[in-house]
Nucleic acid binder design. Structure first.
Length: 285
DNA sequence: AAAAAATTCAACCGCTTATTT
DNA sequence: AAAATAAGCGGTTGAATTTTT
């Protein structure tokens, strides 16, 4: 262990590293105001800031840019992240383009902390357990009361009841189902437990009928690595082992992109009405 | 009350792709 | 045409903060 205990905020090869100070931010902001974005390597020369161009760009893009949206990811944004991730894998900058004001870094962090396989937080797990129990009880009650009547109104809320699909093709449930499930859940959750903040950030992927393992096939590989592998060979003809699903999805980029943008823009989610996917014979539905 | 564990997220690194010289 | 430089991307790290024990 090299003696330097405070490796953070250090200086290395003439460049400062670590967290930015307010003064540094000020210099950088002033630079951009005068010279515009870009030519990051001249920041140091012109302003005297002891930061590499790379560091300057990162700081601007991820933190100082005025058009950044601050604050928590909203449930709507979350839905978009999940759907686009299901479609594109770890192509964070691509996903970020559909979320104005959010950076790829932010989305990546969000996804990793909330949805990376095996990492649902304990809070969320607990909240979820409580919620499911409550819901079960409510359903039982309402069934007793109005036995046999139309349950249409609940139709979209439950994976088990609504996402019923042809068993032959659909061992993988569509991301659409997940998202609708999510919205439905959210609504109910909010009504039942408006104080339970966690619930707002809970994601259907953990309770919905599909998992990334399913998507990837038997291998059980973790999605991040699959995505990583694919991004390396992106666009090429290489196949990942067990990753044919992703490969074929990624080739759909052009077909689907515009629709996804619309989708992200707020029309709500419209996976169910994506003819191209069906036309191409993907076994999603 | 305090120590340990878990989580978050800003910033880093190495690599790839795009642009400029 | 090719070398050099800049920008962009995704994975990873670790200090700071929060939660749990």
């Amino acid at each position: 262990m090299e003696g330097q205990q405070f490796a953070w905020g250090r200086e290395e090869g003439g460049w400062r590293k670590g967290p930015w100070t307010a003064q540094e931010d000020k210099l950088l902001v002033e630079y951009v105001r005068q010279h515009g974005e870009g030519r990051w390597n001249s920041v140091a020369k012109i302003t005297g800031l002891k930061r590499s161009g790379k560091s300057c760009r990162l700081r601007w893009v991820n933190y100082l840019r005025p058009d950044l949206k601050r604050g928590k990811i909203t449930p709507q944004e979350e839905s978009v992240i999940l759907e686009l991730h299901a479609l594109w894998g770890n192509r964070w900058s691509t996903i970020a383009r559909s979320l104005p004001g959010r950076t790829d870094n932010e989305i990546k962090n969000y996804w990793r902390t909330h949805f990376k396989k095996g990492k649902p937080s304990k809070n969320i797990e607990r909240a979820r357990a409580r919620f499911l129990k409550q819901r079960r009880e409510m359903q039982q009650q309402s069934q007793l009361m109005q036995s046999g009547q139309q349950q249409q109104q609940l139709g979209q809320d439950d994976d088990a009841t609504s996402a019923v699909v042809d068993d032959n093709l659909a061992e993988v449930a569509p991301p659409a189902a997940a998202s609708l499930t999510h919205d439905g859940e959210l609504q109910i959750m909010q009504e039942m437990a408006p104080d339970m903040d966690d619930l707002l950030y809970y994601h259907p992927g953990d309770m919905s009928p599909y998992s990334y393992d399913d998507l990837l096939g038997s291998g059980g590989g973790d999605v991040a690595s699959a995505g990583a592998a694919a991004s390396t060979s992106e666009g090429s003809s290489e196949e990942l082992d067990g990753g044919a699903t992703w490969g074929s999805l990624w080739n759909l980029d052009d077909v689907v992109h515009d629709m996804m943008i619309d989708c992200a823009a707020g029309a709500g989610c419209c996976w169910g009405s994506f003819p191209p996917l069906q036309d191409q014979g993907l076994a999603f539905y």
